[in-house]
Design a protein around this nucleic acid. Structure first.
Lengths: 234, 234
DNA sequence: AGGAATTTGTGCGTATGTATC
DNA sequence: AGATACATACGCACAAATTCC
């Protein structure tokens, strides 16, 4: 984890990563984070840098820090904060973000994906994301086939992040947001091709690492028109 | 400046010191602070410690920090923040704190004062403090006579702190709050003697240093009944 | 206009204190 | 009482933005 030209400072990247994990349900309320030194070591950053990110989360009320005990996730109740998490603005009222698993399949990797992992196959997880009950995004996650033989749909119901860590020994170490048409992969469904004057979809790319190896594995689209694509999926 | 047993962390002491300076008008809106390294050196603390205090002020909206330029005081408009500064609660609505100079005299030091400075005389500055137009405190400041021959009333009108620094080369380096009867000096006016069940006055003691010498020089009383004393002064 | 100097921002590493388990 | 984990504080190096000459 380094700060390259034009990118956000490391501590802000960490902050956004954790916020995204909270909003997405990969970090659940009450969950205790690993010790700061462990987290920092795994992320390859200094403890002070991590602490700066954690302090920011505490300011936002998403994290409770207890000396001598640990750092505990505190889910946010204020809907406005959730909107800020997603960088999405909805006109409708409050409501917690939800993630409904649409499908979990072990399939041959789509050739349009960037290369990742060792297996020619991968687990394709499709999730429907709602905010205030309204469909805001569909999320497609690819997990390399070598990590697990099979993945049960029930395993993912509660906390995807927790599943990664406890069952697979994976820990998400970095996440990037990219906005723009160029970042949309070729295999994006036609419904997502942009028209002039329409909002640019927000694309979230999440990467994880184990034993130093890294792979891009997940994209998330946020678009008001995503419902059309979902209708076809179901 | 060290952290002793039971006292607040250094960075919190700095934060409160600066807040008090802002609230009291010793630091005025738009004023630029000295460079961080200079401030830290004068205070005898590390830059990082100072920066933590400045960051807290920025969070509260009292300070604007501009990379490559400097740190600028931003007066607070939110009345609630002002009340927090004074640790005083008023029932009435908002309003900026003001400091009206009642008198500036060079007189023989009151024997009830703790020893400070070299001169047998001192400048006695009395200021009337208002919050939301309501009289909330009277402030009596003693400045050792050796620092200046005479002090003009006009000099103090704008920013006492600025006057100290630019004209006298003094810089406030520490401030303590003490609550309790024992800390009230003997020369406190009769109106301030406590009665059972009445609120305890808040006493602010400010010290400054030059060339390593220190002197206690200022007390401030906050009490609803201060108006009676003021009436006699005028 | 442009380069040097100034000033804050970021990141790292370390040591020690303090609360919790 | 010992181990664990967060809190505080220090100092250094370099980056980035601003300001000054």
């Amino acid at each position: 984890m380094t700060q390259t030209q034009g990118s956000l400072p490391i501590y802000q990247q960490i902050t956004e990563l954790l916020i995204r994990d909270i909003a997405a349900g990969r970090l659940i309320d009450g969950e205790r984070l690993p010790p700061e030194r462990d987290m920092a070591d795994e992320m390859g950053i200094a403890v002070g840098t991590l602490r700066k990110a954690l302090a920011e989360l505490q300011n936002r009320g998403m994290l409770e820090r207890v000396q001598g005990s640990g750092n505990y996730i505190r889910a946010v109740s204020d809907p406005k904060s959730l909107y800020a998490m997603f960088r999405l603005e909805l006109i409708a009222g409050g409501g917690l973000p939800t993630a409904e698993v649409l499908s979990v399949d072990r399939v041959v990797k789509d050739p349009g994906l960037p290369g990742f992992g060792l297996s020619p196959e991968g687990h394709r997880i499709r999730r429907l994301r709602r905010l205030s009950g309204q469909i805001t995004a569909v999320e497609e996650i690819w997990l390399d086939g070598s990590y697990a033989e099979t993945i049960a749909r029930e395993d993912l119901s509660e906390s995807l992040y927790l599943y990664y860590r406890t069952r697979l020994g994976l820990r998400i170490v970095r996440a990037e947001d990219q906005v723009g048409l160029g970042a949309v992969p070729d295999w994006a469904p036609a419904a997502f091709t942009l028209e002039a004057g329409t909002p640019v979809p927000l694309i979230t790319r999440i990467s994880w690492a184990q034993d130093g190896a890294r792979a891009e594995t997940s994209w998330t689209w946020f678009d008001h028109r995503v419902a059309r694509y979902v209708a076809r999926l179901k």
